[in-house]
Design a protein around this nucleic acid. Structure first.
Lengths: 333, 333
DNA sequence: ATCCATTCAGTAAACGTTATCTCAAATTAT
DNA sequence: ATAATTTGAGATAACGTTTACTGAATGGAT
């Protein structure tokens, strides 16, 4: 334990109230005394205890971040962008991974709550945490899911539309046997993808086949396994849409291993670019992940709500375009 | 604010002391009363306020992580591995990026201090933060630097040896014009690289040239710039050693752009593998980064010291081998 | 010279816990 | 039946802050 306010008071020969006033820049304190206190503070290296401050003032200058995995590249990109906004305002980030486990997610939220964070950034797993998250009590910003958009501020990319665009793009180029490989089925973001997929088929007067929709986890491993399974089918798809950059990595590794050429044998569209896009053949046609934009919006939404709690609940929907590469082959007759 | 211990006491018709006893599993409390209190807790959804607990007990169950950039892949890998060890023990991570700025680093440490973290994980920037970091007051584990190894527990990879191995490997294959591209010159990890580089030349009876040592930042951008500069020289190096995976990415991108073939035109060894190693031609000869091992050791060291403060200061040195790929061409006569 | 504002600094209660100290009641030993 | 011990639960101080309240001293207006 470092020096406390009491030590400073004694050292400077004043009361603790005076020290507190000096520290917090409250007016009505004599210049001479102020100088004396400041000298004592410097001498003792006094730093106010944020725990005590938090207890008294209900302010911790800490923002909780509850996500599936703090080492997921997409999550990190988002978090880092949010940190860039929040740190200059004095906030630091308390991070916890849920590993896509609803039980752990509940624990994380409870923990954040009992550590009295000033706000929370969350990409929810469970579909019924609305009750847990007392979003009316403190600022909460959700991202990458839209299940909470009526409860708390939310920023997400319109995945329905992005998926629609991707499927439409493929259908227009003659593909109809189009597989989609994505993460956990229960996530709203995957329900959106599903809807976009169906709508594109519907609008193009084509029939979607349910065995072309593969859900697993957003991991390199699942990308490999799912792709392997697809290729082994009697009627392998002519095109695959990958739900995340991590999945795409797995798909590409597996394709290389099985000597499946992209796009000659199978076309590919990815949600999210690869970290090393520039070095890889072919360039992958993809829909932008927009980590920066998402993180920045999260930071700004949180700040504005920290300043004014009575704002209406906001929903920021970002749109993602398809960036063309060379991973799609047209197979029109 | 949720319910406090007082509310629970009132609800259950007992004193706060009794509630506290129930919550903390202190014996000597009547079963009937205990049941009553537990019911009240459930009814009110009471969760102990960690701020108050921390103030009273000097325990926050929070570990600070002070690193150059929380979005650096190496740092994240390490942090995530440490989290895997620490979370099950009830600790969460408070993270802050220093951006390699000594001033910011000081602020981060002060902040962690005033937020009363139970321990600190740090990869220091400044060479004289020993005074700041009261490592005798609370557990500190440093990594990726060895400047603090006499002050606090440290885990790092022997970069001197790794660099020696890399340079030796190249010299033995006929290279003598060997460039090294690395990050910030002031970091101890780069001084170690420098020493390893020189020792390899010395032991092989070769002369090292100072213009072959390039220091900048651990970023993709610097990798590109530095490589461009090297290639443009009158006597471009026949081999390049890259100080990190991020730098290697930049180097490869630049090489492709300039149509420099690896290893035909220039050989390459990288500190750290690429995320997509498997997809890239050629396979890059590299020295393992060992994020997992580092993070795990950090977590374990921290835990053991949290349990026993009086352990001697420990230094865990990991060794990294060269993994051969196809990015080095022998040029022996 | 008296009164009223002002300015400044100290006292103490409060934030939500825990733990020590009491003390009453219940149990055991005589 | 009484004394000695054990058990169970309440009151309260303390952790390090902030802030409303109190009050002394100064200064200006009458």
């Amino acid at each position: 334990m470092g020096a406390t306010i009491k030590d400073v008071a004694k050292e400077a020969g004043v009361s603790v109230a005076t020290v507190s006033r000096v520290v917090n820049g409250v007016p009505n304190v004599n210049d001479e005394m102020k100088a004396q206190v400041e000298k004592a503070i410097a001498r003792l290296g006094y730093k106010p205890n944020q725990l005590a401050k938090g207890l008294k003032n209900n302010v911790t200058n800490t923002i909780g971040v509850v996500v599936t995995d703090i080492s997921d590249p997409f999550i990190i990109g988002v978090t880092r962008a949010a940190e860039k906004i929040l740190r200059p305002e004095g906030y630091s980030l308390l991070m916890a991974s849920t590993d896509n486990d609803e039980e752990k997610e509940k624990e994380c939220i409870d923990m954040m709550d009992s550590k009295c964070v000033d706000g929370l950034i969350i990409s929810p797993v469970s579909n019924n945490i609305a009750a847990l998250l007392k979003a009316d009590t403190y600022p909460v910003v959700a991202f990458d899911r839209n299940t909470l958009s009526h409860i708390c501020d939310t920023v997400y990319v319109d995945k329905e539309k992005a998926m629609f665009s991707a499927v439409d793009y493929l259908l227009k180029r003659g593909h109809t046997n189009i597989a989609m490989i994505s993460g956990e089925k229960k996530l709203s973001t995957n329900f959106d993808r599903y809807n976009g997929y169906l709508r594109a088929f519907f609008e193009n007067d084509q029939i979607a086949r349910k065995e072309n929709l593969l859900f697993g986890t957003f991991s390199r491993n699942y990308g490999m396994k799912a792709f392997e399974k697809l290729v082994a089918r009697q009627d392998p798809p002519t095109a695959v849409i990958s739900g995340s950059a991590t999945l795409t990595e797995g798909i590409l590794i597996q394709a290389k291993k099985m000597r499946v050429r992209i796009p000659e044998d199978i076309s590919l569209i990815s949600f999210g670019a690869l970290a090393l896009q520039d070095l890889i053949e072919p360039q992958i046609t993809h829909s932008k992940e927009m980590q920066q934009e998402i993180g920045t919006h999260i930071g700004e939404m949180l700040l504005s709500r920290l300043r004014r709690a009575d704002l209406p609940v906001r929903l920021k929907v970002l749109e993602s375009n398809i960036i063309e590469g060379d991973s799609v082959k047209a197979i029109n007759s």
